[in-house]
Amino acid sequence: MEQTGSVKVPDGKLVTVTATYEDTIESVTITGDFFLEPPEARERLERVIEGRPTDVPKQELVDAIETVDAELIGFSAAHLAEAVREAIDR
């Protein structure tokens, strides 16, 4: 199934995650009005989230996101992880 989760960072940006999943997260798209340097890192962030089980702990997602060499601007790894959990929780 496909679901969307969004996190609005207080005084910051909106991060939306659209996830396709069954028992594992099959595919992820990250969108929003955030900034990211380099911009090409968006796909790498998506790849480190994919393939994980739907009961993945938030901290494991944060750790995975932080392995990507990128500067997240207007949001943090924790916000992105939260948006992923939102997308797969329901």
């Binding site: 939306t16 798209t29 990250i30 969108t31 929003g32 009005d33 955030f34 990211l36 911009p39 968006r42």
Partner: peptide, 9 residues
Amino acid sequence: IGRFQAYAD
């Protein structure tokens, strides 16, 4: 629109 925004949104 911003580089990372979804057009339809």
